[in-house]
Design a protein around this nucleic acid. Structure first.
Lengths: 140, 140
DNA sequence: TTGTATGCAAAGCGTTTGCAGTGAT
DNA sequence: ATCACTGCAAACGCTTTGCATACAA
C-alpha cells in the first residue's frame, strides 16, 4: 500500500506551487527547502509515481529535458520564448483538430507548442526585462 | 572548409530517403548499408552539422528520444499512434495561431503533435496490421 | 601537404536501479 | 513488526568529446 512521506509531500507541493513546468533538478531544489536531505533518486521515483497516478503531466519541448507540471491546470499548451528560453502556459486552444489527421486515423489528443517572443523580449521598443528573465536556456 | 565524405552523404541520404523521422540509431543502421564502418559518433556529429546548416529538422515528441527528418517536407506536423507508437507526418496545419498567445507575445512558429490511433490500429473492426507495424515503442 | 572528418574509446549527463537502512502504518 | 520508501552509489542509455589516423582538397 502507498505511504505518505515528508519527501512525497514536498515533491508534490513543489510542483503544485510552481507557476511553470519544472525540471527534475528544479523540483529537487524546491523540495529540498522542505526536506534538506532529499535525494534526486527519490524525486525521479515520485515523479514517475505522480505520472502514473495522473497527478502530474509530462511536458516535453523539442530539444529540452522533460519538465513536470500539475494536471490541475486543465487542458492547455505552452509557449517558449526564443529569446529568454522561458516556458509559459497558454490557456487558449485551437480546438478540435480531428480534421487534420489522415483518413482512417482517430485523434484523441494533441499537444501544441508556440514559439516566439514573450512580452519581456519584444525587439525594438525594448521593454524592461522582469527580474529572472535572464537567458538560462538556449535553443539550437 | 567543409568537406564531402562518403559517410556524410550516406547520413544525408538516409534521412532524405526515410518516410518518417529517424532516431540516430536508425540513421546509423540505414547509413551503414552504404558505409559499413560508420560509427555512431560520426552520425551525431553530422546530425548536428545538418541541423546547423538547416538541412535537417529536429523532431522531439514527449517522452521520446529526438528524431531527425529532412526540412524538404515543408511545414507539417506529426501524429503518434498510441497503439503502435509509430510517428506519421501530418501535412495539414491549423494555420495562424497568433491569437492563442497572451497579449504582448509574438508568435513566429509552432509545433503540433496529434495522438490517437492510426488506420492500422483502429479498435473493434480490427484491420490487418501492415507488415512492420509491430509495437516497438511505448508511451508512458 | 594540410587540416577537416572519422573511428574508437572514454567521458558526460540525465535517469534508473540495487541494496541496506529508515520510518509510516 | 512489516514492508514501502529513502539515500547513496553504481549502472544505464544516449550523446559528446579527446585523440590519433584517414582522406578530401
Amino acid at each position: 500500500m502507498e505511504r505518505s512521506t515528508r519527501q512525497r509531500s514536498a515533491i508534490r507541493d513543489a510542483i503544485e506551487a510552481a507557476q511553470r513546468p519544472l525540471l527534475p533538478q528544479e523540483v529537487l531544489a524546491a523540495a529540498q527547502q522542505q526536506v534538506p536531505g532529499l535525494g534526486i533518486a527519490t524525486v525521479y521515483r515520485n515523479l514517475k509515481a505522480l505520472l502514473d497516478e495522473g497527478a502530474v503531466k509530462l511536458v516535453a519541448l523539442p530539444g529540452e529535458n522533460p519538465r513536470y507540471e500539475p494536471v490541475g491546470h486543465g487542458h492547455h499548451h505552452h509557449f517558449q520564448c526564443q529569446a529568454c528560453g522561458r516556458v509559459f502556459d497558454v490557456h487558449a486552444c485551437p480546438g478540435d483538430l480531428s480534421r487534420l489527421a489522415p483518413p482512417g486515423f482517430t485523434v484523441s489528443d494533441h499537444e501544441l507548442t508556440l514559439y516566439g517572443r514573450c512580452a519581456d523580449c519584444q525587439p525594438a521598443m525594448a521593454r524592461t526585462p522582469s527580474p529572472g528573465s535572464t537567458n538560462r536556456q538556449r535553443r539550437a
